[in-house]
Every structure is written in C-alpha cells, then in structure tokens.
Simulated scan of single mutants.
Amino acid sequence: MKANKKIPQWKSEFVSSIAEKIASYSVVGVLDISGLPAAQFQRIRHRLKGQAEIVVGKNTLFHISLQRAAGHKGEKILDLSKFLRGQTALILTNLNPFKLSKILDESKTSAPAKPGMISPKDITIPAGETEFSPGPVVGELQRVGVKARIQAGKVVILEDSPILKQGDIISKEIADVLGKLNIHPIELGLKLIAAYEGGIIYSGEMLKIDEAKVLSQIQGAYTNALYLSLNVCYPTRANIGTLLMKARVSALNLAINAKIFTSEVAPMLLSRSAAEMLSLARAICASDERALDEDLKRMIAIAPSPKEGEGKAEKPKEEKVEKEEEMAGLGTLFG
C-alpha cells in the first residue's frame, strides 16, 4: 500500500499563517503581478506599508488558505479562487476596496512596449511633424501602417494612424516605432483582479469609478430630492428654512387678499386702501371738483398722479409669490 505523501512543514505553516491573516482583515484581494519588475514591486509594497499587506505564494496554497478561512469569512470568499491564475499575490487590508483600487492605480508607471506584449489599449500615432530627419525611419513607419513622408527636411505623419487595438500582440516592428516616437503604452503596476468584502466579490473593473462623474450624479440627485421635498412640503433639515420662508410669504399673501388684520399686514392694507381712496378721489374730481373737500383736494395735488388704467378702483388681485422668492434659500444650501 502506497504511503501518503508528507506535506512539508513550511507549507503547513504558510497556509495557517495566511488563513489567520485573511480572517483578521476586512478586505482580501487578488493581484496580478505578472511582468512587474522586482524593484517596482518592492517600491509599491513599501508605499502600502501600514495600509495593506501583500503576500506572494503559490496559487494552490492560496486556495487552501481561502478554504480554511471560509469558516470565519463565509463560503463566498471561496469565489476568489477562480481568480487565482498565473502570477498572483494576495493583498490584505482594512481599506475600502474602491480606495485600495485607486491607490494601486496611482502607483502605476508607463513603460516602453516590448515584442510579444499585449496592447493594454487602442494606440493611435497622431498626425504632425516629428523630430526625425529623412532616413530609414520613413519606411519603418510605413511598414506598420503609418502614413508618413518627408516635408521641409522633416519626417511628417500625414494623418492619425491607428496601429494597435486593445488585446493585440505587439510585434517587434511596432515596438521599435513606438519606442522611437517615445510612446510608452505599457502600464507597470499591481493590477487588482478582484476583492472580497463583507460577503461580496468585486471584480477589478467594478472598482474603477469616475469620481467626478459620480460626484456630479450625487449632487444632481441631492438637488432633485430637495426640489421634490419642497414641492410636496416634506420638511427635512436641509429644506426647513426654505419651507418656513415660503410658508411665511404665502401666509402674508393670504392675509392681505383676505384683509385679515395683523401687526404685519395692517400697514400693507392701510397703504393699499389709501392708494385706492386717492385713485377714486381723482376720478370723482375729474367729473366734479365740488364733490371733494379742501383737505382731499390737497392730498390729490400732493400725491403723484396715477398711471393710465389706475383711475378705477379694481378688485385686488391675489398676489403671487415669485419662484425666485420661494427658492431664495436654495443658494445657501450649496454654499
């Protein structure tokens, strides 16, 4: 009978150590470290010191470590195993996974393309004059699909020339042309493939967000919610000042039009009544001056003449609150 193969002690210790670390951190991520120079890897690891811990090892040992940690973290963490392909490492942290992704992206640097590499994005050679003098470079450019010719003693690229699409394998000819044009399309750094937090697996693409766009969307949602709450008169901490202002103006308008005397409304009603009385007096005076006494005649002479159309006493129209007055307080909400 064949004896079971003994597992080396260092492997058992490594798995136990990683399983304990996975259990102690809130976020566990899988990194792609392929093609990353050792010196840059160490710089990134040093930069993350105190914020995250990077562990390098074999994928099979990582898989076993995840299985052991599943009892504490939950079965969902085992889904990280499907991302353990190629050269990988685990990153352990208590940072928000979105913040972690941003930090890793900011640590990336540009590098020249080498033959056999995969293009990370579409690459187009822009039109314009180059620094090259006439020579073999014209043929090199033309061989990779760049329209170039000599003008006024310089090599000129006639139009924007796409030479690579994302995912294309970079040939030696294209790599040489990109190098001569000082175009460095390769990003070197740690790529976050996936991250686990609180029972959820986030893919690397999900963790890449446009902060300016998201902030704009949040501000738009806040403004829409604020206007909705004002329109339905739903009081909140953000709109209570504006609602009270709107209610006060509406109450004053109602009191004026309904002729309800209050300490605030009385002066306005008396002023309106005086204006209507003088307008009526002028209309009567125009027909028969004898109908007015001397005091009233003096008041008409001192008071400004009414504008055309104001001679007749009209039923007061209900005053409307301008939208700008109702929303006057909105400006203060956004500073």
Rank of each mutant, 00 (worst) to 15 (best):
C233T: 11
C233E: 14
C233D: 09
C233F: 14
C233N: 12
Y234M: 08
Y234P: 01
Y234F: 15
P235A: 11
P235K: 12
R237H: 06
A238G: 04
N239R: 01
I240K: 13
G241Q: 03
T242Q: 04
L243E: 00
L243T: 03
L243H: 00
L244W: 01
L244H: 02
K246H: 08
K246L: 13
K246A: 12
R248I: 07
S250T: 04
S250N: 03
S250Q: 01
A251S: 09
A251T: 05
A251G: 01
L252N: 01
L252Y: 00
L252F: 00
L252W: 01
L254D: 06
A255S: 06
A255P: 00
N257E: 06
A258S: 03
K259I: 02
I260A: 07
S263R: 04
A266F: 01
A266W: 00
M268R: 09
M268K: 11
L270K: 04
L270T: 05
L270P: 02
R272D: 07
R272L: 08
E276D: 13
L278T: 11
L278M: 11
L280T: 13
A281Q: 06
R282D: 08
R282Y: 08
A283W: 14
A283C: 11
I284R: 12
I284C: 10
A286D: 12
S287A: 13
S287R: 15
D288G: 02
D288F: 02
E289A: 14
E289H: 11
R290W: 12
A291V: 07
E294R: 12
E294Y: 10
L296Q: 12
K297R: 15
K297S: 09
R298E: 14
R298F: 10
R298M: 13
I300A: 09
I300C: 13
I300G: 09
A301K: 15
I302V: 15
A303Y: 12
A303C: 03
P304I: 03
P304R: 05
E308W: 14
